[in-house]
Design a binder for these strands. Structure first.
Lengths: 136, 136
DNA sequence: CCCAAGAGTGAGAATGGTTGTCGTTCTAGC
DNA sequence: GCTAGAACGACAACCATTCTCACTCTTGGG
């Protein structure tokens, strides 16, 4: 599978993601490359991210504002997401644990899993307070 | 909590979602209302969906093409999503089961959960075949 | 060394779902 | 009927992402 050996450009993206504390959007990656005088086109960043994703090296999720953020596959992080303000905070819990709970061939039916996302949507404590403030 | 009693407009949205087989996008809901000669503005549909979501009656998820699709909260469905073609197929497995696995106050820290999403991203069988076809 | 073919790239235009704006309409209370 | 405030509708604006296309780089053959 040649596609699992990323080209230098994609290696660089992966490196940046691994160095980053949290998740990065394509635009942030693009900016960081520019800052490091390794400017590339935004389209190339998107292309590279898609290939990395398909190679099983990077995972992503869509924020409520439409942005997509990326992280290395090995970081198994999930999130609490506020439906009001859109903020997300880490959720120290993975529904699959380290074992592949229930992910057997019967369920997958030929589907080859690369990564998973688990998100709990609700109201963050801040937005609950605002809501109460409006009611009372 | 007054917000848990939706206005007629929002009741109609909820009804349409319950009647629908699968998930509906805001645009599809808008179209169905037009078809039923109950035309409303698109902005109103979005407003209503957001309120329904915050009232804990509707859940949503973002597709890879950027669309957001909505479904009644009581439908606890999750998906396998192809990172290549974007198609999604139902996944008959919920990481929380019917009990609230691990969702204790310590983890939630004041966050009030409304719904959750669980998605497995990977390659669907069709896209795996295409990939093989290109390699060989 | 030169050439051709194909993949990779970059800049900018195009796309399209969603959100914001703002004047109008509806509702509730008097 | 009148007023205040919420809800609404049409349309403009937004912006992350994708598309386009000409250019560059790499590779293999001659």
């Amino acid at each position: 599978m040649a596609s699992t050996i990323p080209l230098p450009r994609q290696q660089r993206l992966l490196q940046l993601l691994r160095l980053a504390e949290g998740e990065l959007s394509a635009q942030e990656l693009h900016q960081r490359l520019r800052d490091a005088q390794q400017g590339t086109g935004l389209a190339t960043v998107y292309r590279g991210l898609k290939l990395l994703q398909q190679a099983g090296l990077v995972r992503c999720r869509k924020l409520s504002n439409g942005e997509t953020v990326y992280a290395p596959l090995e970081r198994d992080e999930h999130h609490l997401i506020c439906v009001q303000c859109g903020s997300s905070q880490p959720l120290p819990l993975c529904p699959l644990g380290t074992s592949s709970l229930g992910l057997n061939a019967v369920l997958l039916q030929g589907f080859r899993p690369l990564f998973h996302t688990f998100e709990i949507h609700g109201l963050c404590s801040r937005c609950q307070q605002v809501e109460v403030g409006l009611d009372g």
